[in-house]
Design a protein around this nucleic acid. Sequence first.
RNA 1: GGAGGGAUGGCCGAGUGGACGAAGGCGGCGGUCUUGAAAACCGCUGUAGGGCAACCUACCGGGGGUUCGAAUCCCUCUCCCUCCGCCA
Length: 445
Amino acid sequence: MVCPSSLRRGAHVVVRGGVPMIDIQRIREDPEAVKEAIATLGAEAPIDEIVNLDLKRRKLLQELEGLRQGKNETSERIGRMEPGDERQGLIDSMSGVNARIKALESALRGNEDALQRAMYEVPNLPDASVPVGADESENVVLREEGRLRKFDFEPLPHWDLGPELGILDFERGVKLSGSRFYILKGAGAKLQRALIQWMLDLHVSDHGYTEIYPPAIVKEQCMWGAGQLPKFADNIYRDVEDDLWLVGTAEIPLTNLHRDEILEAEDLPISYVAYTPCFRREKFSGGRDVRGIKRGHQFDKVEMYKFILPEESYAALEQILEHAAAVCRALEIPYRVVQMVTGDLGFTAAKKYDLELWAPGSEEWLEVSSVSNCEAFQARRTHIRFRREKGAKPEYVHTLNGSGLALPRTLIAVLENYQQADGSVIVPDVLRPYMGGMERIALEN
RNA sequence: GGAGGGAUGGCCGAGUGGACGAAGGCGGCGGUCUUGAAAACCGCUGUAGGGCAACCUACCGGGGGUUCGAAUCCCUCUCCCUCCGCCA
């Protein structure tokens, strides 16, 4: 089943003084439908608590604002009166009202804090087109492109190939920083740099993105805005002294680039591409993927990001997927497109595709891109809106993101797919201009 | 890190306790005039919450306080600028 159609639309209501998540209006109107949708994610959210807090909030507001109105009127009268007994009497009479107002304000503050906390925990709801499924095992492979190369020798995994070529060093990485760190060296480091430069150039010149160099360390607020907090706190590196957080993806600074702005409709879509290092503690990956460089605490990524009109966001999702696929095609490496089911959507996406490159040595499909439509989820959290025309009410934009692509994994795919019987690696045609014309990585390099 | 200065609406900039959601200007929108445009003149021109109609409430960097009443007074935080130190 898909999420009820009543959940797909809705006015854009913001919690006063706070930041919303999904539209609270949807919860007010049909809390049961929201709960059903969240159940398909395999997630939990305090919907009943939100409904109660929201009711309570409006009750408090009405009483409080009524009292404030009376108070304002009385203060005005006092200001116009000559000094005297009557005036003093009015002033004295205000103290009771003020005490009540203070009490209500305090209650309202507590109520809104609780409401906002609860709202922050609500995940984005799935788009109607997303298949319902419990977890990643039910994800749907939509298509596979490119021919798997036939090897007349046993292709090596990169963790053998790299060290033998002298371009990858695990021991020294561990010496410097511990497990899940490694060193790229010589042509290996250069190959990664070439990939980054080439991908950035491709997205800028062929796909119309504007290149951004953002901070990789951001304020806590940015983490909430992009949807990293509250859920993923344990996976984020943080400088406690200055309360700055290391980004796990460029999606975080890019989302926040237009925080608290009202954009002009004619400026949309805004398309950014950014290269950043990414830092993840990988607290939840346990002993998974410890071999090789597939999952490190630090990696590089080129990320595409779009701010767009709501009615155009789903077409844009397919487009970004194509932009990521274009990288795979140009590298001439087989890839496949996987659609996430509801249970594997994550916290922020309404619909998501993964793009995977085949790695013949490791013998697995490597996730090198994740392409998501977050609809207005991140825009609500960051207050990014647009106006359809002058004087029109601001509406939330939709945001999308997609890796284009994630680095060490793309590097793995290049090494493993282009390896030769003699242990050397052919440099893909598109990268040669970025490698100073180098055609092959061999030991003597 | 040390010393000093500052933060007002899209922008500039007045406002030091009482009718200020905030003068004035610029920009923008609409209108008059004009064959058209410019100029001139007139009007409008923030956001959010609640009612969901009239209307009410909140917001002058953030938070707290004093007061019947605060953009205006006090405390505190953040950010920006200038000078010194340090530095890629």
